[in-house]
């Protein structure tokens, strides 16, 4: 398990039906590129988050493939349509097999 991985998500608490809302996500992760060498000249193995998804009530908003060129502490900003009250589920997939999740409820009034 990569150390100190902590997802953070910003989603508005409420919206009107069909409204486009802005979502921001940030997760602490070193995103070791596999291009660097340690002090002894040995290549430091790649260890990154390679996929991120956001779904709302089970339906896809965005599915991102990440390569090592994504910066340390990956940040994403995108927009979602909210048809009804429900839950956003966010999932990050680590090279080492770990999966990190977060979810946020939103109320449509």
């Amino acid at each position: 398990m990569a150390e100190n991985v902590k997802p953070r998500v910003r989603v508005p608490r409420d919206a009107t039906a069909g409204e486009a809302i802005v979502i921001k996500t940030l997760i602490s992760h070193t995103m070791e590129s596999g291009q660097r060498k340690d002090g002894d000249g040995n290549t430091i193995p790649r260890s990154i988050i390679n996929r991120f998804t956001c779904e709302f009530n089970g339906e896809l908003v965005i599915d991102v493939t990440l390569e090592p060129a994504i910066s340390t502490n990956p940040y994403f900003e995108f927009q979602a349509t909210v048809p009804e009250t429900g839950t956003f589920d966010f999932t990050w997939y680590d090279d080492d097999g770990d999966v990190y999740t977060d979810s946020k409820d939103i109320t449509v009034g």
């Binding site: 809302i21 709302f56 339906e59 493939t65 990440l66 390569e67 994504i70 349509t81």
Partner: peptide, 13 residues
């Protein structure tokens, strides 16, 4: 390669 963004039906943009 840097990233691929695949948009689902609920992507507002």
């Amino acid at each position: 390669a840097v990233a691929t963004f695949n948009f689902g039906p609920l992507a507002a943009a």
